[in-house]
Amino acid sequence: MRPSEFEYHKADSLEQALALLQEFGDEGRPIAGGQSLVPMMNLRLARPAHLVDINGLGLDTIEKKDGVIRIGALVRHERYLAEPLIIDNFPAFIDGVRAIGHPTIRRNGTIGGSLAHADPTAELPLLCMLHDGEIIAASAGGERRLPATRFFEGAYMTVLEAGEMIVAVELPVPPASSSGAFVEMAERRGDFAIAACGVTLEHARGRVTRAAVACSGAGQTAMRAPQLEEALEGLELAHPDAAAAIAAFTETLNPPDDHSASADYRRALVGQLTEQALATACSRAMEAS
């Protein structure tokens, strides 16, 4: 279990990294934290001929500008837990980050790496979808802004093209009267989830004015639940009973059925986690207001 041969290139600037990635095309991969890519390489399930090391490029800031929070592709997971811009604006995001792997993984893994790896039940893809995130992908030809909801094509598959790499993720800053929560169920703490659900709410006068729901475990990628989101509008924060709407949502799901979980379990779990995330988001909203 050692990687096949490749050439290593350390990029000193984004331009250089993108030029190298363009040159190598399908044969090249950027490497940042290596927490997802290197296991695949050691198992020889990934065998890039060229690795472009982007760790020296900066791309590791979290900034607020023009109503969005921009997270550099190389921001390591543990950073969020001490970052007021995230803590203050995205409680669901913080819940989700706490559930990622283990301390060493959180210290080294990057948001760009996690999104590009596209594990079906990883936390960050779901969280970016939940928060209406846009993924900024750059190539030698320029930048593309890709809504997170259209970024993932399947398990371990994204719309990124050869020569392209993620440089940042932008999350719109939610209004002050907002709330959120994320809940996941994993066999062991730190494992990829069997299913997970994140909820965000905007509210006024004790009622939900806008909701977002994203879940994983129901398909090959995380997904939003637009009908459910609509149904949650007007929900009383003090009585967050949305069982019927959630049931209507889970009935539409067609989750995978495999050795680790049956389809009916996954479907029920998504519903249950959605209820829990919603209840927590509502009670957080009540506490804040």
Binding site: E187, R188, R189, D191
Partner: peptide, 28 residues
Amino acid sequence: MLEHFIYDEDGQPLTVTFADYLMPLATE
């Protein structure tokens, strides 16, 4: 609670890494 070595009906092993063959961690 956790450990299960699984083969499919063709005799292909499905739990060949520690991501699939789950042993107790301190947190459990």
